[in-house]
Amino acid sequence: MKKLTALTTTALAASVALALTGCGGTAGSTTTSAAADFPKAGSTIEWIVPSAAGAGNDILARIVAPAMQEDLGANVKVVNKEGGSQVVGLNYVAQAKPDGLTFGNTNIPSILGRYLDPSKKAAFDRSSFTPIGSFATNSVVIGVNKDSKYKTIKELFDAVKAEPGKITVGTDSRAGDDHINLRLLENALGLDFNIVHYNSGADKVAAIVSGETDFALGGVSSFFGQYKSGDIKLLTVIEDSPSSFVPDVPTMKSSGYDVDPMASNFALSVPSKTPKDVVAKLESALKKAAETPAVQEKLKGAATQPTWVPAADVSKMWEERETLIKPVIDELLKQQ
């Protein structure tokens, strides 16, 4: 009897594990070729998030997915495929069956760094994906410690010019968005920073609050809490018009610097051979979800701007950013 109890306990725990991790596998048939009946009621669509559970991407996906699910009448399941600086998850999406049952985050510009760098061994490029739209943007800002001697972006950049390579700036990772944006900025304005890499946006922010680095560049969401509490002062937002989250922060343009806007876009894509009408159906579901007031409120709560960009515009933006960023990445590779 006692043995039996132990075995049941084990079995119970195992079934809980299954339920929690969702090892149930993908349900639904995948033979659908036309969109007339896409998605079949009760089928499961996988939203592949190429980062860990709890990362920024993941949290936003878990906000948007339930609203898409409601519109499509199918399950939209967020699946984390972490590893290889997102290459593992992106490979998975690029190589998935093009039936609309698999899509994933192809955030722009961060995806560019994954396939433009040959050492990352990505099994995809821009042509492997068809975008279904972008549901949110994150403006890029520059912040300093509240007691920093640099009160304006001009003071900071003048100091950089006076002592090239001395002023330190933190990034969230090597060859990530922050790093690439900093290199773009250096090229555009003829500056030279001492770029130091941290392991995450949080570590980068901590280094500003403690005063270990002189300034930091990154998405406004990563600075939001410290900006609100006054621990970090934002000097500029790299946009043409002010951000609604930080309306009092001057734009780069208004400070007299001619730099292209740098916001990152939370774009989603399916494998490129997915039928057009299936793509259209997913696009309309994503658009509806992104425009749901409750979803927008949650996105804003995460300091992310709900902004709908249609699939066609995402494709265009992707191409433009690729042209802009490719030389920067090539240059980073040469430095190794």
Partner: peptide
């Protein structure tokens, strides 16, 4: 301080903001 010092606590930070609270 609003700064998560580990991956696990970073997820807590996410939970705060999702629920309309700013950690810090």
């Amino acid at each position: 301080l609003g700064i998560p010092t580990s991956a696990t606590v970073a997820i807590m930070a996410g939970a705060f903001t999702m629920n309309g609270l700013i950690p810090g």
